[in-house]
Design a protein around this nucleic acid. Structure first.
Lengths: 335, 335
DNA sequence: CTGAAAGCGCTTACAG
DNA sequence: CTGAAAGCGCTTACAG
């Protein structure tokens, strides 16, 4: 394969001149430019990325750190990966996938062998073990997720707190005062998933402010068990007039369980939910909801990280939360 | 950050000696080994991967070429990505994610800028546009998918033909002679998805051999439409006593539609299916089925690719098909 | 068993 | 506007 010397020789210039054309850092005469471009095209030359990385000390590569291996239960994961990679490519960056079961190890290896210029962390926990590997690292990172203490790391996510507020408000405005709050299995909260903790906390806070009673109703994590749990909740004779759902598995199962129990939405029961847009689309979910947009979060994360890499953007640590959009599908009745 | 020279100095040896320890290509005295190892640990040294790539002409990186952007409708995609990356890492390889909407461009760029030593192609079509970019490439590739003409490229996949045969046999053995074949939307076949074409062809061939009538019944590609299509098929008054399903969206919807139409499986209707293991697990699908295992295919693909890179393994082009496993869940009644 | 030296393919002050 | 030269951090025949 041709290297920069071959191009220089074919064009009758020095290697430096070819390099300047490639980087655009110096302006060349039109004739020189044209001769070099012709040589590049003829030889099918492209820059050896390893050599460039060595010379510039920049890899033009970002790493995505996927911490968990339950990819199967994360329908939005592929969307995140593809969206991050797309956004990175548009900025001239490649993407390395880092999936080690041991997150800190994955981070340290990529950083110390200088494989990446920056990192995107997916599936962030309140007290994430990867943080330690990041604090003494010369490589900037951005979290997709918003722990209460980000340790000085940039972070980006849907605004789960406002999302909860918006949904509780929506129910309250329609006259609902007792609401069943269908949540993730407790293991999700215990593990410290930031999206779950933030949403739950804000839902309770807002409900208290408005005098709305929230009945916590966790669903377990397998289809059969979720169905059982949901069925039990729906058949329970109590004063709950609405469901506030934050659990992708449960909301996916909900239409079928509603059907089985013969309850009509919104006549017999109102429903609002927070779930990923992927899930909504895959199941054509018919509920009024805030949909988390993996692509928007991914684009934002890459923007923030690139700002940091370029030294552009605002000073100081950045915490950016995407404003939720309520998609009203009429699944809430006025009481 | 420390480089190999810093380590050499700290250990009182030459850089070459450190390099030999790192690569294991020469045997050093225990004392030297120990001094170097101590220096490495103390300095927190690790090899600069770009520099190593430049010196060795090997990147130790594989590229995954994801061609389509409908990541949302591909629940197994994340599993493929994670599984390939895991397998690669175990062999000492990193993984670059290549998602350009223009597949051939993604391939050419990664190859010509020497970012990868090998490529894994996902979502392979019968007449895939990426093949052309591969034939004149010095970088070996493996397909996950099995076109009829692989152009000399290694390929790996579930054996969809045997899968179809096994499922048709299963129905035939239980006395079913008229079977409704619920298929993907015709666009899937028209686009040339190898898994769809191979399965359909083999199903028809086997059915013809056994004297089983297969009623082709495509489902469209949105939840609402799938439900409509399935409902219409189930209510159709004909002699079909069983369903053979090859359509992930349809099989996911099937339990609910069965419920609505009041049909009992297997009493009123027998069902067999081919779907991804991810789907089966996410929905707890209760049907006798062949489940496609993304992880198995990913492991196999990486094995084949690494054999090629090392020059090990059998000579010639390799086409490996994973034997299907029938998971009998009793959804077929004897007639 | 160990080391000096060339080379991988690029970039970038620096001099002209 | 262009080029000679040093340097990025490694590896690997080769000589000892």
């Amino acid at each position: 394969m041709a290297n920069i010397g071959d191009v220089a020789r074919a064009a009758g210039v020095s290697r430096a001149t070819v390099s300047y054309l490639l980087s655009g850092k110096k302006r060349l005469t039109p004739e020189t430019t044209q001769r070099i471009e012709a040589a590049i095209a003829e030889l099918g030359f492209s820059v050896n990325s390893g050599a460039r990385a060595l010379a510039t000390a920049r890899t033009m590569t970002l790493g995505i750190v996927v911490q968990f291996h339950q990819a199967e239960f994360e329908p939005a994961l592929a969307t995140y990966l593809v969206a991050i990679t797309d956004a990175a490519r548009e900025a001239g960056y490649s993407v390395l996938l880092l999936t080690d079961a041991d997150g800190p190890v994955a981070v340290r290896r990529a950083v110390s062998s200088r494989q990446v210029d920056g990192l995107v962390l997916l599936n962030v926990l309140e007290d994430d073990p990867r943080f330690a590997a990041l604090t003494d690292s010369p490589v900037p990172a951005v979290l997709i997720g918003m722990p209460s203490d980000t340790r000085g790391i940039d972070a980006v996510d849907l605004d789960f707190e406002t999302s909860a507020t918006v949904l509780v408000d929506h129910l309250h405005e329609h006259g609902h005062t007792v609401v069943r709050f269908v949540t993730w299995p407790s293991a999700i909260y215990d593990a410290g998933h930031t999206f779950a903790l933030r949403f739950r906390r804000a839902a309770h806070t807002r409900a208290a402010e408005l005098g709305v009673t929230l009945l916590d109703s966790p669903c377990r994590d397998e289809p059969g068990l979720i169905r059982e749990d949901l069925t039990r909740y729906l058949q329970q004779a109590d004063e709950a007039t609405a469901l506030l759902v934050h659990n992708d598995g449960a909301v996916a199962m909900l239409p079928s369980v509603l059907h089985d129990t013969g309850l009509q939405v919104p006549q017999d029961l109102s429903v609002v939910s927070l779930h990923s847009a992927q899930l909504a689309s895959f199941f054509a979910l018919p509920f009024t909801a805030v949909e988390s947009q993996a692509r928007a979060a991914a684009d934002l994360a890459v923007d923030v990280l690139l700002d940091r890499l370029r030294g552009s953007g605002p000073d100081g640590v950045r915490h950016v939360q995407l404003p939720p959009v309520l998609v009203d599908q009429g699944s809430v009745a006025t009481r």
